[in-house]
Simulated scan of single mutants.
Amino acid sequence: MLHQTLLSLLACVVSLSSSAVILDNGMPILWAQTASQLTELPIQNDVLMPNPWNFLHRMSLYRLLIAATDPLMGPMGTGANESPFWGLPLQLGWMLTSGRLVDPTGTTACGMETGDTMCISTESWWGCGNYFVSVLPFLSAAHNGLMGEGVPVQMQVPEGVTDLCTTYADCSASFPDAMSKWDTFFQGLKAATGSPLPENEKKDALLGLYWQAQMASTYASATCNTKKSHYSAPEVSFANSWQNSAEYVAAAHFQSNLEKASKFLIPLPGRVLKEGDVAPNIEGLSTEENNSLYTFSWMDSINTTLGGTLVNMWKKAMCSVVAREKGRELLEQVLLTTNYNSFTFMGVLTTMATSC
């Protein structure tokens, strides 16, 4: 049944040219197949032992994390799906349906229709990078009591994998900055309920802590970079642009709730890029996908040309709650408007930066 569900989703991808499918009945794909209780995941000797190299287990980490933190997400808004964590399962679903979790070396059938469709390859750069924004926050949340008091967790690890941490203590030793920042976020989340700050400032402060943790995890995932050698030059360029775009999103304290994150993820390329793919004229990709790739490309090019100062200028411009609100609006215009003018972007950004 599960295999048939995934094949139906993949068929939908093909029928829509190559647009990524990230939602099923308004929720991340295969959400209904994931664990809604800790006890639905493997437990050995009273230790919770999920397998993050199984798609459903990794997606379950997100479902459990969202459920555990939702009671504390009041500052995010009154909607049912306002948590910034929603962006992460949507990303993971996009990686699955776009073929980015399969073994890029082709030496195994991991993730392929001919093998285990729920397998996340340890050779996938995308799967490896996502490990740091799924396993690390889950381990931190459990350590901070959000999964219940004293719940020990250890991630299963495939044979031969030695460079990824599997427990809170292990991750804290290997990636102390990322784990420390996730701890700070979860502690801040718990403390926010009694904070006297106005709701908009409380929300902005929590999103700031959230994105600090997210970016620390992203920097920690540099250990995955050797896996980029498995991909084409266009895919590597896109991967680098994807990572760089997080700097803009983080500085603007983007609220990656279910609705907003969906808008930004749906236009992403629905297949792995191959040699010869040059946006905005990639055959087989939709206008929206081509536009998304082209936008990532010119933003990256401007930043490179300016020696990295575009990112710094953006961060400088995000100097207040109001400025960050304007920054989020500008990001939406840039990423979702076809053929958005780069000169317009630079003009607006320069004005914002000089007004700080």
Rank of each mutant, 00 (worst) to 15 (best):
L2V: 12
L2A: 11
L7G: 05
A11K: 10
C12D: 11
L16N: 15
N25Q: 12
I29H: 02
L30E: 11
Q33Y: 10
Q33S: 13
A35G: 03
N45K: 12
F55E: 00
H57G: 06
L64V: 10
M73L: 11
G74R: 13
G77L: 13
G77I: 13
A80K: 11
N81Y: 15
N81C: 09
P84Y: 09
F85R: 00
W86M: 01
G87Y: 03
G93Q: 08
M95I: 04
S98T: 01
R100Y: 03
V102S: 04
D103E: 11
T105L: 05
T105Q: 00
G111Y: 02
E123V: 04
W125S: 12
W126V: 05
W126K: 01
G127C: 07
G129K: 12
S134E: 05
V135A: 10
L136N: 01
F138S: 08
L139Q: 10
L146S: 01
V151M: 12
V151H: 09
Y168L: 09
C171I: 04
A173Q: 14
P176G: 07
A178W: 02
L189C: 09
K190S: 13
K190F: 04
G194R: 12
P198Q: 13
N200R: 15
A205I: 03
L206T: 05
L206C: 06
L206W: 05
Y210L: 08
Q214I: 14
Q214W: 14
M215T: 14
S217N: 06
S217M: 07
S221M: 04
A222K: 13
K228A: 08
Y231S: 14
V236P: 00
V236I: 15
N240W: 00
N244E: 10
S245C: 04
S245I: 06
A246P: 00
N257M: 11
E259K: 13
K263L: 12
L265G: 01
G270Q: 00
V272I: 08
L273R: 09
G276R: 04
V278P: 00
A279W: 10
N281R: 05
S286I: 07
T287Y: 02
E289F: 07
N290I: 09
N290L: 07
T295G: 02
F296V: 02
W298C: 02
I302G: 07
T305D: 13
G308I: 08
N312R: 15
M313Q: 15
W314R: 03
C319H: 08
V321W: 07
R328S: 03
L331A: 04
L331T: 04
Q333I: 00
L335F: 15
L335R: 09
Y340C: 15
Y340R: 07
N341L: 09
N341C: 14
S342C: 00
T344Y: 01
T344W: 00
F345D: 09
V348H: 01
